[in-house]
Design a protein around this nucleic acid. Structure first.
Length: 662
RNA sequence: GCGUCCGUAGCUCAAUUGGAUAGAGCAUCGGUCUUCGGAACCGAGGGUUGUAGGUUCGAGUCCUACCGGGCGUGCCA
């Protein structure tokens, strides 16, 4: 049962035959902001002023008159400029609680309008270790998948892995020249990873060798230019006229920034260079394999052209690489319905370009092929002048395939915000191509930052590996769990066995990483902090899991079997804390729907956090096991049961598991 | 230059897309309690929502300008 939807229905009925185009007004029925005023409120009277030419308070009175809602709410009150305040009836709340309690889905109905939705997320490159950058896409995508599925949509997850790119040229080249056969036989993935890193290092070294003098020269030039600008533009010369002053300031900023920008770039580059230079082996390899970047590109081109040997390497390397990625997913408890990578679409690319050309959508431009779109200052290039295809081409082929295969109503791309322009171009092109019925959405997200406010990197400047990150989170979680055990021991309580402690740490650690990400507003960057994510206070997975464990423990200690076959009158809330908790529990369905409006899992985490806080207040005010009467005890135990189930279900929809005790 | 996102409490972040007194957590301060699991609860201080205008019953949210930042910006993905 969705309270909000039910109330909105009643308003819809009230408007019917009276007001035209009332749907936007129905949207203005909302949960109340402050329990002091109301449980729900309708803000529709004010905007109706224009249409009806009456004072909003009069309109509100008219709405209330037409509204048939007395089975659900107390008589509505009109407040302020024309707010209609609704207060739910105790008897109705009790009925809904019992219905939710009896329902395996804790009262969440499935949708009446199921849609076919494809979600494209995670998308790692094979043969390259997964890193911190993959967390958000994977975790957010997985959660959106779970929620849609739970609500009854036909969801298809497709992991569009990078299995056809230049990294294969790199490992093929590496395999030809540097492979340690023994290591490869023992663990192909590890050896391929080493080869990738090694070739990457040689490439970096050679590139830096070439670029560094240039960078240093540019830094010096920038310094000279800045000096000169300052000499030629003393502060006293600053124009007083507004426009000229602005230009003056901009020039100064440009000159000054040139120094810092090139300075920083040079400093970073030379630090990296001298670090690489420490390895004699690397220098030797770099000398023996000049221009390695070009050679790896050639290997990639050969693979794409169907070279038998490279294709054989690819076929040999791919399965173990995918298996390694699967291991990470298993640890994260993430699954996909399909894993159709770039290579899957390779054969379709020429036809895509041909078709777009034939239909007059794409045309040659400076030797390449591109789609020109109104309101876009750059063309969407689908073929390079050397004839090679681009990821734009693959993305279009993917859209075409998915339409043929699944006819989706909606396609979500959970990809970081830096690619928003690419998706704008992609979606516009797809529309022109005829796929104009599908709701394509770029579910974008911000960058994961370190505590210095810059993208989260290791001290050496590399991306942080995902597995190491998870290990560290689990290690911190173990620290938290151990601390807890010390306390238990002091208080003479049972200390858990080692195996269980490790299990709890794993569950709590992984949950912490996921929750930290999901609880953040998706569009903004966020600062990664191990300490904060495993904190036992605040909006963290740890706090929620504890709340669940505490609830479970009370239920366990009651020694009773939960039985929801009761009369609603027995569930009537007697205490304000019970009532607040009951309403929050019943709002679970509407929150899930709200999450999907704009694909914002943080609304679900916020809801769960509020629920957990209300439970704490409830325990404080309302003894459960030591309740005054048997009826009270029973009612409160049932509330605990529902809380535990909503917490578990809600966390489950975020991809987070719970433990029975901690 | 153009495009785009952002600027909210000391810190990290919310704010149901235009609704009532802008909320949480951390940190700070005060209080409660012989713990149904105290990882608790109750309370206080802390804000000109970057600045200045505008739109209207009503603006953190929309419009304009400015200040400060991130990201992107034709053949990488």
């Amino acid at each position: 049962m969705n309270i909000l939807a039910t109330l909105q229905d009643r308003f819809r009925q009230a408007f019917e035959g009276w007001i035209e185009d009332y749907e936007p007004l129905v949207e203005l029925v909302r949960p109340g902001q402050n329990p002091k005023f109301c449980d729900y409120q309708a803000n529709c009277a004010m905007p109706m002023k224009q249409q009806l030419g009456q004072p909003p308070r009069e309109i509100a009175a008219e709405i209330v008159k037409r509204l048939e809602i007395e089975d659900i709410c107390e008589p509505p009150e009109i407040a302020g400029p024309g707010f209609i305040n609704l207060r739910l009836k105790e008897s109705w709340l009790a009925e809904q609680l019992v219905a939710a309690g009896q329902d395996e889905r804790v009262g969440v109905p499935t949708t009446e309008t199921p849609q076919t939705v494809i979600i494209d997320y995670s998308s790692p490159n094979v043969a390259k270790p997964m890193h911190v950058g993959h967390i958000r896409s994977t975790v957010i995508g997985d959660s959106l998948y779970r929620i849609r599925k739970f609500l009854g949509h036909n969801v298809i997850s497709d992991n569009h892995i990078g299995d056809w790119g230049t990294q294969f040229g790199m490992i093929i080249y590496g395999y030809r020249h540097f492979v340690d056969q023994e290591a490869f036989a023992k663990s192909p993935v590890e050896e391929l990873g080493r080869l990738y890193q090694w070739v990457r290092k040689i490439m970096d070294y050679q590139a830096l060798e070439k670029e560094l003098p240039d960078l240093q020269a540019k830094t010096e030039q920038a310094q000279v230019a800045w000096q000169k600008w300052q000499e030629e533009h003393p502060e006293s010369d600053k124009p007083t006229e507004k426009k000229a002053a602005k230009k003056w300031k901009q020039e100064r900023k440009a000159a000054e920034q040139g120094v810092t920008n090139f300075g920083v770039a040079t400093k970073e580059a030379s630090a990296k260079y001298s670090k690489l230079k420490e390895s004699a082996n690397l220098i030797q390899a770099a000398e023996a394999h000049p221009n390695i970047a070009q050679k790896t590109l050639e290997e990639t081109a050969k693979l794409h052209a169907g070279d038998a040997e490279n294709k054989r390497f690819w076929e040999e390397f791919l399965p173990p690489c995918i298996a390694a990625i699967e291991e990470v997913y298993e640890r994260l408890d993430v699954t996909f319905d399909h894993t159709l990578g770039e290579s899957f679409y390779h054969d379709r690319l020429p036809q895509v370009v041909e078709d777009l050309k034939t239909k007059g959508i794409a045309k040659p431009t400076e030797g390449a092929i591109g789609v020109f779109l109104p309101e876009q200052d750059i063309p969407f290039l689908i073929q390079k002048k050397d004839g090679a295809f681009l990821y734009a081409t693959t993305d279009l082929a993917t859209i075409q395939y998915r339409q043929e295969q699944w006819q989706p109503d909606q396609v979500l791309y959970v990809v970081d915000h830096r690619q928003s322009q690419h998706f704008e171009l992609l979606f516009a092109t797809a529309k022109k191509w005829g796929y104009d019925e599908t709701d394509f959405r770029h579910v974008s997200f911000g960058t994961v930052l370190g505590d210095d406010g810059r993208p989260f990197k290791t001290r050496a400047g590399d991306a942080v590996g995902l597995e190491g990150l998870l290990d560290e989170a689990v290690r911190r979680a173990r620290g938290v769990v151990d601390e807890l055990m010390v306390k238990k021991k002091e208080e003479g309580e049972e200390v858990f066995p080692e195996s269980e402690l490790q299990e709890i740490a794993e569950t709590v650690g992984i949950a912490a990483v996921k929750y930290a990400d999901l609880s953040q507003s998706r569009s903004s960057d966020y600062v990664f902090s191990y300490d904060k994510m495993v904190a036992t206070k605040g909006n963290t997975a740890t706090y929620m899991q504890y709340s669940y464990a505490r609830c479970s423990s009370i239920l366990r200690k009651s020694g009773e079997t939960i039985d929801w076959q009761i009369e609603p009158s027995e569930m009537t809330c007697q205490d304000p804390n019970e009532r607040q908790l009951a309403i929050k529990l019943l709002q679970f369905p509407e929150v899930l729907n709200l999450v999907l409006v704009d694909d914002r899992p943080n609304l679900l985490t916020a809801y769960l956090f509020e629920l957990a806080k209300l439970v704490s207040a409830f325990y404080e005010a309302c003894p459960v096991l030591k309740a005054d009467t048997e009826a009270e005890r029973k009612r409160r135990l049932l509330l605990c049961d529902l809380v535990a189930r909503v917490l578990k279900t809600g966390l489950g929809l975020l991809g987070i598991s719970v433990v029975k005790r901690m």
